[in-house]
């Protein structure tokens, strides 16, 4: 079970959280202006990287807040977590755990 650091509450066990998919995919301001293909990209297409992944988590059984995390999908270690609305930290490659 992972340890996840909620930016509001601190380090907590994984059971308190819900995964929320890839981060930094904003809902288009005017969906009606998008083509079907553009809308499908927004709805369904995700990056699924090997390595650092920016993703959303919700501290469901805690403060209830959504926040973002950078997790290394190879090692399953978190590099950092940050509040929703903040930009993705400028971190390259993986440094949280050895892949």
């Amino acid at each position: 079970m992972l340890i996840i650091t909620c930016p509001w509450c601190g380090a907590r066990p994984e059971v308190e959280f819900r995964y929320g998919g890839e981060a930094h995919i904003a809902r288009p301001a005017d969906p009606s202006a998008l083509t079907d293909q553009e809308w499908a990209d927004f709805l369904y297409n995700r990056t699924n990287p090997k390595g650092l992944h920016a993703e959303r988590w919700r501290h469901m059984h805690g403060c209830g807040r959504y926040f973002n995390a950078l997790r290394d999908t190879v090692s399953d270690f978190f590099v950092t977590t940050y509040k929703a609305g903040e930009p993705r930290p400028d971190i390259d490659g993986s440094s949280g755990g050895n892949p």
């Binding site: 270690f77 978190f78 440094s95 755990g97 050895n98």
Partner: peptide, 8 residues
């Protein structure tokens, strides 16, 4: 500080 391992 966190469960992540920096290095062996």
């Amino acid at each position: 500080t966190s469960p992540a391992r920096g290095a062996t």
